[in-house]
C-alpha cells in the first residue's frame, strides 16, 4: 500500500495551503481556469468534500460530538475517499490535479487541537506529497479581517471554539488562526512549500503561480489526447 508513494506518475499534483482568507482559493481557481482554457486535463478538489463522509462530518459537528481524535480521523477518512477514488486514479491517468488544501491542513489544524504530530504524519502516510505546494503567506491579522468582515457569524469548529481558547468566537478564531499559521511556518521548509507573498495584488500573485507551474512542467503534454 505504501510502496509506490514516490513512483513517478503521468499526472501532477498541485496543492494550495494557507489560512482561511489567505487568498489561496482565489488563486487556485484562477490557475484552474487558465489551465482549462489551454485545453489541459485538469481536476479540482476541495478539502472536506467527499459525499460519503459528508453526512457523518456534519452530524458530528452539529452535535459537537467530535473530539480532537475523531475530528482528525473523520477528516482523514474524507481525504482518503477522495484520494483513493479521484486523486490517485486521475494522477495515473495523466491529469493535473489541483487541491484546495491538502494533508498539511490536517497537520496544522489537528496539531493545534492537540493530536500528536508524529501520529498525524503516519496517519496520512498513505498519501503522496504534492509535486508542488503553494503556501499563501498572509499575515493572520489580514486573513482574519477578510473572513470576519461581512460575516455575521463564525461556525463553531471554524472558529476553533472546541479548543476553549476564548468564549468569544471572534477572539477564539483569531487565536486559532495564529496557531495554525505558526504550524504552517514550522512546516514550510520541511515540505518545500513555494511561499507566496500574500501582500501583493491578486494579479501579481497569479502571474507568479502560472510562471512556477509553467517552469515546472511541460504543460502541452497534459492536453487531451481524444477529441471532444
Amino acid at each position: 500500500m505504501m510502496g509506490h508513494l514516490t513512483e513517478e506518475l503521468p499526472g501532477k499534483l498541485i496543492a494550495v495551503e494557507g489560512l482561511d482568507g489567505s487568498g489561496k482559493s482565489t488563486q487556485i481557481y484562477l490557475l484552474k481556469r487558465w489551465l482549462e482554457m489551454r485545453g489541459l486535463k485538469v481536476y479540482f478538489t476541495e478539502w472536506n468534500s467527499s459525499l460519503v463522509v459528508k453526512k457523518a462530518t456534519s452530524k458530528g459537528k452539529k452535535r459537537q460530538l467530535l473530539t480532537p481524535t475523531t475530528f482528525s480521523l473523520i477528516h482523514c477518512t474524507d481525504f482518503a475517499d477522495r484520494y483513493e477514488r479521484q486523486i490517485l486514479p486521475l494522477l495515473k491517468a495523466g491529469y493535473l490535479v489541483l487541491c484546495d488544501r491538502y494533508i498539511y491542513t490536517a497537520f496544522a489544524r489537528d496539531a493545534v487541537r492537540g493530536c500528536s504530530r508524529p501520529w498525524l504524519r503516519r496517519l496520512y502516510g498513505f498519501a503522496r506529497h504534492p509535486d508542488l505546494t503553494f503556501f499563501f503567506d498572509t499575515a493572520p491579522e489580514t486573513a482574519y479581517g477578510r473572513i470576519v468582515s461581512g460575516r455575521p457569524q463564525l461556525k463553531y469548529h471554524e472558529a476553533g471554539m472546541d479548543l476553549g481558547l476564548s468564549s468569544d468566537p471572534y477572539e477564539s478564531f483569531r487565536l486559532f488562526q495564529r496557531r495554525i499559521y505558526d504550524e504552517y511556518l514550522a512546516m514550510k521548509d520541511e515540505f518545500s512549500f513555494v511561499t507566496m507573498d500574500g501582500t501583493v495584488t491578486i494579479e501579481a500573485q497569479q502571474e507568479r503561480v502560472r510562471a512556477v507551474v509553467s517552469a515546472a512542467y511541460d504543460l502541452p503534454s497534459f492536453r487531451w489526447r481524444t477529441l471532444r
Partner: peptide
Amino acid sequence: LVSEELAEAKRGNVLGEITRSLFYATDFA
C-alpha cells in the same frame, strides 16, 4: 457518529480500502 455510513458502505462496494479502514477507526475512536 458513522454507523449509518458504515452500514451503507457495507451494502455496496463504494469505499476504497484505506477509506474503509479509516471509517472503522473513526467509529472505534
